[in-house]
Design a protein around this nucleic acid. Structure first.
Lengths: 212, 212
DNA sequence: CAACAGTTCAACAAATCACTTGAATAGTTG
DNA sequence: CAACTATTCAAGTGATTTGTTGAACTGTTG
């Protein structure tokens, strides 16, 4: 014991976990599964990739145990193996945002300009929820809302927001949230709401951060 | 904004961080730097790799900002960019040990049989340190001890333990610790000590876990 | 400023990876 | 049990990664 070959093999084992997340497509899969379980073709659709390719990536995640599967009817649902995997993904994101030079640029290119967006912190939201003077709006796709949401939140997926604006109560502060800090849904929702005269802000991050 | 290409680029950015850890050699480097800063050829020596090759890996870690460098005289010392990188490495290890099938076997192959080794928890050690009836032994290489150690610990690198046994006080419980749960130094030290009649146990993990 | 130790670069072959295409499989529903 | 659907497998291609080697830097010291 204690020999080089065994040590290399052990650390290769650790590295396998990191490498499973070491691909943008697989990172997106994990990011998606943090919200809720999904079938292969739903995942492929979200990624804009072929089902075959998505399946391959899922197999890789499965091989290192980061995800698990469940069959329901004739589709197979993938979900994260544990809360700890979500934590790993969160830490990866944090390290990237702290240390990767270009990440701010990449994020800005994807998210657009957030400087004119009101942002509400989690603490502030908790406060106002206690006071009861705020409407919380979950703008993620419905399955993700069903899998878990902020207590009392109203579900209007961002794609349907324009046509369901009349369901949003007037006269109260609105706080929209979505998947996390790198998700554009709440941004889009806030912009739409403000255009229509609603006092809207986005939660600083998303549901996973709220729940954990 | 919000388009596919920008999203892919952003997630590729996150994935870069994971992929930097996605190689056994680089994982060993990070594992080593958690303890203390090191020069390139010290790292190469620890890894059993060529200096040129080690330097390449270091460049990759540097590119994503996981490590930083400092020059002193005519050598360059690498260290982790932040405590958060150490946290990332810890979470990777935890996820691997929870979810990777073969990890127990790999660990057993490297660490050998631990079933006959007394293990002391951190809480227990804290307790006994307060009581003052324990000798704490840091068996890591000296530079790592210098970079930080459990208060009051005695430094005897495992390689020198046999020849410095007389420096270990008799008649008290001894607790040896090293780099972490996947480090063999403390195991070896405990076995050596017990062979010579010392009542010795190893700390459940290592200095980084104690410090954080 | 020359010699030197330490570090990095450049170029290579072998291995691995991402994605595509098309076929095979397993489980479900009529 | 036959038709169907969702998923996986297998083979192929081009691009990337790995570890070597040897040469080229870089900053320090005598």
């Amino acid at each position: 014991m204690g020999d080089r070959a065994a040590k290399d093999a052990l650390f290769d084992g650790f590295a396998d976990v990191a490498r499973a997340l070491g691909n943008g497509r697989r990172a997106q899969i994990v990011d998606l599964l943090v919200q809720a379980e999904r079938s292969v073709d739903e995942i492929a659709g979200e990624l804009g990739q072929s089902v075959a390719n998505t399946s391959q990536h899922l197999q890789q995640l499965l091989r290192v145990g980061l995800v698990r599967t469940r069959r329901d009817g004739n589709r197979i649902y993938y979900s994260l193996a544990s809360e700890r995997v979500a934590q790993l993904w969160r830490v990866v994101r944090e390290v990237a945002s702290e240390h990767v030079e270009e990440l701010d640029d990449l994020a800005a290119a994807y998210l657009g300009d957030r400087s004119r967006l009101d942002i509400m912190t989690r603490d502030e939201l908790a406060e106002r929820l206690r006071a009861g003077d705020v409407v919380v709006l979950d703008v993620r796709p419905e399955p993700e809302f069903r899998a878990g949401h902020i207590a009392g939140a109203l579900s209007i997926p961002v794609a349907e927001l324009s046509s369901r604006l009349h369901q949003v109560p007037m006269g109260q502060q609105i706080v929209a949230y979505c998947r996390g800090p790198y998700c554009v849904y709440a941004d889009d929702a806030v912009r739409t709401l403000r255009r229509h005269g609603y006092p809207a802000a986005r939660l600083e991050d998303g549901y996973p951060e709220w729940a954990s």
